[in-house]
């Protein structure tokens, strides 16, 4: 429930018009500026830490034993 409230709160934030999003369009402002590189990082963390989740690596073998 607390996440739902948080989501609704976020969705009620003031809007930034598209014409003002020039800075947000830069690569450094992307939520994941290096997605392919991070897929390997997530793979390592998924198998070297007992805390998988929040990444794309949840199955499919690890290549690491």
């Amino acid at each position: 429930m607390k996440y739902l409230i948080l989501l609704l709160t976020l969705s009620a934030c003031a809007n930034v018009p598209q014409i003002d999003r020039g800075h947000l369009a830069k690569r450094m402002m992307s939520l994941d500026p290096r997605p392919q590189e991070n897929s390997f990082k997530n793979e390592i963390r998924a198998f070297r830490e007992g805390a998988v989740g929040g990444s794309s690596s949840v199955g499919g073998g690890c290549g690491c034993n």
């Binding site: 996440y3 976020l10 934030c13 003002d20 800075h23 939520l31």
Partner: peptide
């Protein structure tokens, strides 16, 4: 995942995951 643009220089993302093996 949910993301919200807060200002012209701020964006926030929330994520929830469930995995069952």
């Amino acid at each position: 995942q949910a993301s919200q643009i807060l200002t012209i220089k701020d964006i926030v993302q929330l994520s929830l995951d469930f995995v069952r093996a």
